[in-house]
Design a protein around this nucleic acid. Structure first.
Length: 896
DNA sequence: CAATTGACGTA
DNA sequence: CGTACGTCAATTGA
């Protein structure tokens, strides 16, 4: 690490001045925590800290605050800093929060009774200079200008708190017309309105600077005040006392007695657990959560690390080499790099470099360039399941290594998953996305900077890779501690981590697709789309509007055809399917029918098109499963999403016939849980009625309906059944009587009655729902059967809307989340069962309550057994888990 | 050109 | 004014 010298640098921040600026830089109404406390200033402060650390790479940092109550300056001049506007209501409390946040950051802050923040800054700057540490002052207070020297630089905020101007002695001279040490002299003459210090009337910076030029300094001017001619001279003589007072007040105190020494201010004492808990309290979002640790735990605050670059000629992973063996053998993190955009080019991503990082050194290597012995050593190391491996994303890293024909065993920690288990509502920790963004930045950066001081690995900055890998390594213990605190370590180790391996395989295998079938479907829908569009145009006078434009539709429907207004949206009236149906019921206008049909066909065609584009040359589609996208713990599928392939409409379902068993396999198998969420509801609520409904083995909704309506099972008609079904599922979603009524097209009063009737028979459900929300409110989180938590601070919000929403989430999360837990367990069991029985059949997809598999010739019976057992026995509820299985040539045929 | 919005597919 | 997602096209805004 050649560029890093032993140069030390301290950032000194005037806390009050900057907190106040931050307050005005960001709108308080957009930054509120769960208690309604404004946090905009705190947020701005955090961003400022991040920026300044990132840009200046300091080794030390400290913040100084004023104390309430006066200082010695007030005793000298009772109008000092008078006449200021009252502190804005929303600023109150934010300084204390900022201080609390700084504690979590491990940043030392000071207050000194009777003195101002500026005096603290002056003292620290003086001390630092003496110790050979370069001070950088971050304050908007002009009193700090006097502190600038050739070793001390002032960072003056220009706009907000992140846009800073560097003020060194020559910059001060240029802007203020005097050198820094004379600025207080000038300010004494000119006055300082911020401190309510009036200067000499008629004397501005130019005159003051001229005088200083003539007489050397303020003392010289005062000595020769009688000689100064003109109006300004007289004005000076009339205000000598004020000038002397100003000068006395604006002199910074440089010799305060502060606790600790410079080392107290050293950067790198942050505590991730504390940081996150304080961010929770502040309701801060994902960006700052990601940024702050990188700054506070950055390389500059750590001891230097040796970097070993392994090239073909360097035999660095030979186990005989004691030191390097230790590097690889001990707790290493693994980092990896991919070349392009991570899409499935020929089914494989392209690994360009791999970083192995330990506490003592990092090794950068290019696995594909490695010589035979080294390559073999690397393979052995990666395959050894006893050696724990960690990565930011084990799934992504696994893909990359697999692309280089390297197999990994012994994954022990995954930062992205750990982070997700701690903060499931924090959205953008999409592992691939985040890693990719970083990598692309690296690549772009490497391309930009022609001069490379670090080794260039095909345009990838090896230093950046090392920084990332060691960041991962250092973050692991912190996240682990946090997981432990939240009781989620087992969830990571026993569920998510092994699942990541399975998902990697599923993504890598992909699912076979019948391309001709897709082409066929596409052609058919294209034809239909054109036909229906013509039909639609014919009903509005032949005008060829864009049927996909809500805006154009609005003008046709509501302006030209004068149809009654529908539900309001941000941009006008809604034209969604429900609104159009309502309009059709009112107007019988044939255009609406054609439009709805056109929507249908267009949607299907889009889906088909998306799928067609996703088919690889090998005739397969590889989705990506995210383990950290859905806050309930469900998986999400993307690029393309294979969890929303049409199933409800007949036309849509045909798309499923394009998914087929792979070559060399006999059939596709689908296996799904029936009513898993209602079963979980029965389990969690311990409602006897619901439990016996499941144990009876009869149709659930009919059984429940017969209870609710008090009729025999064979007297339940379809209307009763569907109403009951709507109530059942509505309950799990926190549905209101209003919503239920709308859904069923019955008056709200009737919906209320229906729900009451339901609760009369299933009182346990009502009690459970009520109690579970209350418990969540007290604890601050909901929990699934496996202890997966979801934190819901809004349950105690005083904003109705936010609270109601959180309550619905609290009702649903344990149910949806427990279902997700169960099918994840099932996937581990199925995968294990297939391996144990030495079967070739393989998992392909998971669709929340359904698994899809490739079944090899002759394995159908065995696979069915493994899958059924694996799923049904995944978790023991107080009701049985029922799984139905189907097989067929295509996904459509396999459905049941 | 990137971000947002409306609409709609799934469980 | 029912939970959880991802994707598309049109639109908006920098």
């Amino acid at each position: 690490m050649s560029e890093q010298s032993s140069h030390q640098r301290i950032i000194l921040i005037d806390g009050h001045a900057m907190a106040f600026r931050a307050f005005f830089a960001l709108p308080p109404e957009s930054f509120k925590n769960g208690q309604g406390q404004a946090t905009n200033s705190v947020y701005g402060f955090a961003r400022m800290v991040f920026n300044v650390i990132k840009n200046e790479q300091p080794t030390h940092i400290a913040v100084a605050f004023d104390l309430a109550g006066g200082t010695f300056r007030d005793r000298i001049y009772d109008q000092y800093k008078g006449g200021r506007d009252a502190t804005p209501e929303e600023f109150k409390g934010q300084v204390e929060l900022t201080q609390k946040m700084l504690d979590a950051f491990g940043i030392t802050w000071y207050t000194v009774e009777d003195y101002e923040a500026d005096d603290i800054v002056a003292t620290l700057a003086t001390t630092a200079e003496k110790a050979g540490v370069e001070p950088l002052l971050l304050t908007s207070d002009r009193d700090a200008i006097q502190l600038v020297t050739d070793r001390t630089t002032l960072l003056q905020p220009v706009k907000g708190v992140t846009e800073l101007r560097r003020m060194d002695p020559s910059a001060v001279q240029e802007k203020y017309l005097v050198p820094p040490h004379l600025y207080p002299d000038l300010a004494a003459l000119v006055g300082e309105s911020a401190d309510n210090l009036p200067g000499v009337p008629g004397v501005g910076p130019k005159t003051a600077a001229k005088w200083i030029g003539l007489y050397g300094d303020l003392d010289g001017i005062l000595e020769h005040s009688e000689e100064i001619k003109g109006k300004a001279g007289q004005s000076l003589r009339d205000n000598l006392e004020a000038v002397r007072r100003n000068r006395q007040l604006n002199e910074a105190v440089r010799d305060l007695d502060l606790p600790g020494d410079l080392d107290t201010c050293r950067l790198g004492r942050g505590d991730l657990v504390a940081i996150n808990s304080v961010f929770d309290e502040l309701s801060f979002g994902p960006t700052i959560r990601r940024d702050i640790p990188t700054a506070l735990l950055s390389e500059s605050s750590q001891k230097e690390e040796r970097v070993i670059v392994a090239n073909p000629e360097l035999p660095v992973i030979e186990p005989a080499d004691g030191e390097l063996n230790a590097v690889l053998g001990e707790h290493a993190a693994v980092g990896a790099v991919v070349q392009a955009d991570g899409t499935w080019a020929e089914g494989q991503a392209d690994l360009r470099a791999l970083v192995l990082s330990s506490d003592t050194a990092s090794i950068v290597l290019q696995p594909n360039e490695l010589g035979g012995d080294d390559r073999a050593a690397l393979e052995r190391w990666l395959r050894n399941s006893v050696i724990p491996k960690r990565a930011f994303s084990t799934k992504l890293t696994g893909h990359l290594l697999s692309g280089a024909d390297l197999q990994v065993r012994g994954w022990e920690f995954d930062l992205a998953l750990a982070e997700f288990l701690c903060r499931p509502d924090q959205r953008p920790t999409d592992e691939a996305g985040l890693a990719m963004r970083h990598l692309q930045e690296d690549i772009a950066q490497a391309a930009d900077s022609g001069a490379q001081q670090s080794l260039d690995l095909d345009g990838v900055d090896s230093q950046a890779l090392v920084r990332r890998a060691s960041a991962v390594r250092r973050m692991v213990p912190m996240l682990r501690a946090e997981l432990e605190e939240r009781g989620a370590l087992g969830l990571l180790r026993d569920l998510e981590l092994p699942l990541a391996v399975i998902l990697r395989e599923m993504e890598s295998v992909g699912i076979a697709v019948d391309r001709e079938k897709l082409d066929e479907l596409d052609a058919e829908h294209e034809r239909q789309q054109a036909q229906v569009a013509e039909e639609a145009f014919s009903h509005i006078g032949g005008e060829q509007i864009n049927l996909g434009s809500p805006k154009q539709l609005q003008s046709v429907l509501f302006d030209r055809l004068n149809m009654p207004p529908t539900r309001k949206t941000k941009t006008g009236y809604s034209t969604d399917a429900e609104s159009l149906n309502t309009l059709f019921a009112q107007t019988q206008h044939p255009f609406l029918e054609a439009l709805l049909k056109h929507r249908d066909v267009t949607k299907l065609r889009q889906i088909i098109e998306t799928l067609r584009k996703a088919v690889t040359p090998e005739g397969r589609i590889h989705t990506t499963f995210s383990q950290n996208a859905a806050a309930t713990g469900r998986l999400a599928s993307s690029a393309p999403n294979l969890q929303n392939i049409p199933a409800r409409s007949e036309a849509g379902r045909q798309i499923r016939s394009a998914f087929r068993a792979s070559d060399g396999f006999a059939s596709l198998m689908t296996a799904d849980y029936s009513q898993i969420e209602m079963r979980i509801m029965a389990h969690l609520s311990e409602d006897e009625g619901l439990i016996s409904a499941f144990r009876s083995g009869e149709d659930l909704h009919s059984f429940v309906a017969s209870q609710v309506f008090g009729v025999e099972a064979d007297e339940v008609d379809t209307a009763m059944r569907s109403k009951t079904k709507a109530v059942s599922y509505g309950l799990a979603y926190g549905l209101s009587a209003f919503g239920l009524g709308r859904q069923l097209g019955i008056p709200q009063s009737e919906a209320t009655a229906l729900r009451d009737q339901y609760f009369e028979r299933f009182g346990g459900v009502r009690d459970y729902l009520r109690e579970s929300v209350e418990e969540a409110r007290e604890r601050g989180y909901t929990e699934t059967i496996l202890g997966r938590r979801r934190y819901l601070p809004d349950l105690t919000s005083d904003r109705r809307q936010a609270r109601d929403n959180a309550e619905r989430v609290a009702l649903n999360s344990p149910i949806q989340g427990s279902a997700a837990d169960i099918i994840k367990l099932a996937m581990l069991r199925v995968r294990e069962g297939l391996e144990q029985a030495d079967l070739r059949s393989r998992l392909l997809l998971q669709v929340h309550d359904e698994l899809v598999l490739d079944v090899a010739e002759g394995e159908e019976e065995q696979v069915m057994q493994v899958v059924k057992d694996g799923m049904e026995g995944a978790y023991e509820l107080s009701v049985p888990l029922d799984v139905s299985v189907g097989t067929g040539r295509t996904w459509l045929e396999a459905a049941h």
